[in-house]
């Protein structure tokens, strides 16, 4: 099978194995170049990112991203207080409730249902409440959890502003109409008084 084509495709070596011959071709130049380049890059990369103080670690990058994102998100409202006036004023806020809606969708729907209709967690749309009687207590329950851990504490997970926004979002869920045919969780706890009215000074601009 060794054909006399040494000139065209390279110079044939003398050895052969079970009829397989080999050319004495050099390794391609571009192959060398890229191989060498990858080695040089690797040396630089490894030492720079392992030892240089200029290179941020993954954890530092994460902390930076977190700071930047929250700053971007909450630059306008600063630090929210979890008090009654703030929560009431945020209820139905067109700018901030979508943010709370996102937090709810990520963390709350698996137990409370996508519309707050309740599943293994209580129905949030009715007038019955198990662990609270006042609107500010919503934020407390989110912060610290309830029902001996069945409702987890979110204080370590969420940004303080997110907790306040979420409290307003949940407060606003009360009285929401659930489409007929949706399975809701039976009422739990006691009927509590309606939330206080929204102060005029905040709502009417």
């Amino acid at each position: 099978m060794t054909q006399p084509d040494s000139g065209q495709y390279g110079h044939l070596l003398e050895h052969e194995y079970d009829g397989i011959a080999e050319y004495d071709n050099p390794t391609p130049g571009w192959w060398h170049t890229i191989f060498l380049g990858s080695v040089l890059f690797s040396v630089f990369y490894f030492f720079f990112f392992t030892f240089s103080p200029m290179a941020l670690t993954e954890e530092e990058q994460h902390a930076e991203a977190q700071r930047r994102e929250f700053q971007k998100l909450f630059a306008e409202i600063g630090e929210l207080e979890a008090d009654q006036a703030t929560i009431l004023s945020l209820m139905g806020d067109p700018q901030w409730m979508p943010v709370a809606e996102g937090v709810f969708a990520t963390n709350c729907v698996s137990c409370h249902g996508s519309m707050g209709q309740g599943l293994v967690g209580p129905n949030l749309t009715d007038d019955y409440f198990k662990n609270l009687t006042e609107i500010t207590q919503i934020a407390e329950v989110i912060q610290n959890g309830a029902a001996s851990g069945a409702m987890p504490a979110w204080g370590n997970r969420l940004h303080p502003n997110e907790i306040v926004l979420l409290a307003a979002y949940v407060a606003d869920m009360r009285g929401r109409t659930i489409p007929p045919g949706t399975r809701t969780r039976d009422p739990e706890g006691e009927v509590i008084p309606p939330w206080p009215p929204v102060p005029d000074s905040v709502s009417g601009e």
């Binding site: 099978m1 060794t2 044939l12 070596l13 011959a21 080999e22 050319y23 071709n25």
Partner: peptide
């Protein structure tokens, strides 16, 4: 293919 290997050195 009944052809020799391109390059022994590359191998």
């Amino acid at each position: 293919a009944e052809r020799p290997i391109f390059s022994y050195r590359l191998s």
